[in-house]
Amino acid sequence: MKKKIEKTFLGLAIGDALGVPVEFKSRFELQQNPVKTMREFGSHHQPRGTWSDDSSLTFCLAESLCKGYNTKTIAANFMRWYSENYWTAHGEVFDIGIATSKAIDSFAKGTPPTLAGGTGEFDNGNGSLMRISPLVFYIKDMPIEERFQKVKEVSSITHAHIRSVLSCFIYVEFMLELFNGIDKFEAYKSMQLTVNKFLNENAICSQKEIDNFHRVFENPIGDYTVERLYELDEKQISGSGYVLNTLEASLWTFLTTDSYADAVLKAVNLGEDTDTTACVTGALAGLYYEEESIPKSWLNDLVKREEIIDLSYRFSKSLER
């Protein structure tokens, strides 16, 4: 367990750090000068190996789960990050999503955490998906109904629209399959069957909402021809910060590559929200591939690597109780 958590945490943080210097750059720009290894400065003028809010909030969640499941504690950790620079790479917050900022302000003023996240159509950024991975290890032995409820609550702290919740749920269920050590394509198919069955048997949301995920589930819509997500061309994959685009992009980059390094570099070079796409991809690839798949130079560059490894150890130990 400890090694799987460690690989996941290192994998997501390195993906994040690879993307930070080129965040907001277009795919065209990155095609002219693709990211091939760690860079420094760039978009946020940060040193090499610096990770962003994506990893910070992930580690805040993990720290909370070390003490058990409590949404108030999770929210309190997010506030500590925002106001006290808790779990930041260099003692300062240099990036935060609008929806996350609003939610933190909301529960800081007394709103219950699970009611703080935005519920509108335009509140579907990728801010809960980017930080959800630690929950996988905490809920892995729970029934699927309880897993969904926990994912819903943790997502809703900042992103409460059902589309964000479903994106997180799909991602978590896929990671659970990978955790069990099966081939990634078998894991993907199993996730599709499991989540489709769950949605069909439970009145979670409308069919129209489920249809938004037709490329992930490979579900037909009318005369729409079903295509496998991992057989789509790069031009059909977006690197934007919209949660569904990030989910699709992370699944696509992971499924169309054969190593950790190739997966996260492919994610970064999609452009736009480079750090988050690579962070979400990096958690999948970190969990799935052997640790040796991560280039040593990237591990050496990673800021607070030992602190991240220590967190993975403490988290793992807490799950043994």
Rank of each mutant, 00 (worst) to 15 (best):
Q236H: 10
E227D: 15
L229M: 11
A203H: 13
I204R: 07
Y260E: 07
T276A: 10
F254D: 01
N212K: 10
V216I: 15
E209D: 14
N202G: 05
I221A: 06
D273H: 11
A203K: 15
D275Q: 10
F198I: 05
K208H: 06
L232H: 06
L270S: 08
E272S: 12
V264P: 03
D262N: 14
W252V: 01
I237Q: 05
C205L: 03
K235T: 13
S250I: 04
K266S: 12
D233A: 12
N200T: 10
L229Y: 12
L229F: 12
N219K: 15
T277V: 15
N202K: 12
N202C: 03
G241H: 05
G239S: 04
K208V: 09
E231Y: 12
S238G: 01
T257I: 02
N245L: 00
T276I: 08
G222R: 07
T274Y: 07
G239E: 04
N200Y: 00
T256I: 09
F198M: 07
L232R: 15
E248K: 07
Y260I: 06
E234H: 02
T257V: 04
T277N: 15
P220C: 02
E201S: 13
E231Q: 14
A203W: 00
A261H: 13
E234K: 13
Y242C: 00
Y260W: 09
L247D: 07
E209N: 05
S238M: 05
